[in-house]
């Protein structure tokens, strides 16, 4: 590809991005692309940098390769972050057990593929279902009885449930890592960058799930009820909404997405173990906070930022600094805008 062509393409991408930004309000509020806006933006930014590097005559392959890897990692973070943010929206709880639900999903998918001989899509569905049930059970057992207790109490039971799931996992699945069978081999060459099929699948499935979630939350009654509860719980009750059912539904949907993330992570990074949920869980929560906790598109945005930047830090600096990135971002954003990038400023009533 010549530099001139690259320059033209760069301009094109930048123009496209500008267009997207300009109509962001429209895209975000009214169309079905609301939640796909951020993954799409991330892709465009990467493309832009790619063309910029080509135009400058620099080595672009390494960057693009890493950034594309980042997109798939970011997808996983984003899917987990969605559960955190939705649950936080309805009951204002940092559900520490959420990372472990993702682990449960990964194992459910693993056994669906190895023991039940299911193919990818049915296995994904099984994993999502098992995770949803686990999530709802956790809520019923450990959170529902404490709905009127101090929030710190709830936080501790969440930690307790997290440890319980993890240690039960150690007992049931043993601490030996399992390896997902490889389902998607092969890779494609796009503009000289080789992209694994599995990573494309992860990205595409994430986008599809986003669209489904978007539809659910915007156009279905339970979805609207969920938003109502997160915006004003008492008003929602006065509309005739049964809060308990909505909360359970929220846990089910959020956990199903985490379960999907568990399977998706399995097809890219095949090794799974019972403690696999701890760090990704934490970082996904951080992603949700960065984007603005309680705000669904914010979780997407935060997930993408962390996923891509972690890969770039690993590539250009050192993998040992990788874990600091998510938290570094977190601190910077919290200090600059305490409610997260997309968060709204709230004022305490005096």
């Amino acid at each position: 590809m010549s530099r001139v062509v690259a320059l033209v393409l760069l301009c094109l991408v930048v123009a496209l991005f500008a267009l997207l930004r300009k109509y962001r309000a429209v895209v975000v509020s009214n169309t079905a692309f609301k939640y796909s806006y951020y993954p799409a933006s991330a892709l465009l930014v990467i493309l832009a940098v790619n063309f910029l590097l080509v135009a400058l005559g620099a080595d672009r392959l390494f960057f693009v390769q890493q950034a594309v890897y980042g997109l798939s990692l970011g997808s996983v973070y984003a899917l987990i972050a969605l559960g955190y943010t939705m649950v936080y929206g309805v009951i204002k709880l940092i559900n520490f057990a959420h990372g472990d639900i993702y682990m449960v999903g990964a194992y459910a998918g693993y056994y669906a593929v190895t023991a039940l001989n299911l193919s990818f899509v049915p296995a994904l569905v099984v994993a999502m279902a098992v995770s949803a049930v686990t999530g709802v059970l956790v809520e019923r057992i450990a959170y529902k009885p404490l709905r009127d207790s101090p929030r710190i109490t709830l936080l501790i039971t969440a930690i307790g449930m997290s440890l319980l799931l993890e240690n039960l996992g150690q007992k049931v699945f043993t601490s030996t890592p399992r390896t997902y069978p490889s389902m998607f081999t092969g890779s494609y060459n796009v503009f000289g960058v080789s992209v694994d099929l599995s990573r494309i699948i992860v990205f595409v499935v994430t986008i599809l799930l986003m669209l489904a979630l978007q539809y659910f939350v915007t156009y279905t009654k339970p979805g609207r009820a969920m938003r109502a509860v997160s915006q004003d719980r008492d008003a929602a009750r006065l509309m005739g909404i049964d809060i308990d059912r909505v909360i359970a539904a929220t846990f089910a949907v959020g956990s199903a997405l985490a379960g999907a993330a568990g399977v998706l992570v399995g097809i890219v990074f095949p090794q799974i173990r019972p403690t696999m949920g701890v760090m990704p869980g934490l970082k996904a929560f951080v992603a949700a906070v960065i984007g603005g906790i309680g705000i669904i598109p914010g979780a997407m945005l935060g997930g993408m930022i962390i996923g891509v930047s972690e890969n770039l830090v690993t590539a250009y600096i050192s993998s040992s600094w990788r874990d600091a990135i998510a938290f570094g971002f977190l601190i910077l954003i919290l200090l600059a805008k305490p409610t997260g990038i997309l968060g709204k400023h709230t004022r305490e009533k005096v």
Partner: peptide, 8 residues
């Protein structure tokens, strides 16, 4: 397993 259970 018992420890977190006790906690909850």
């Amino acid at each position: 397993v018992i420890y977190p259970l006790l906690l909850v």
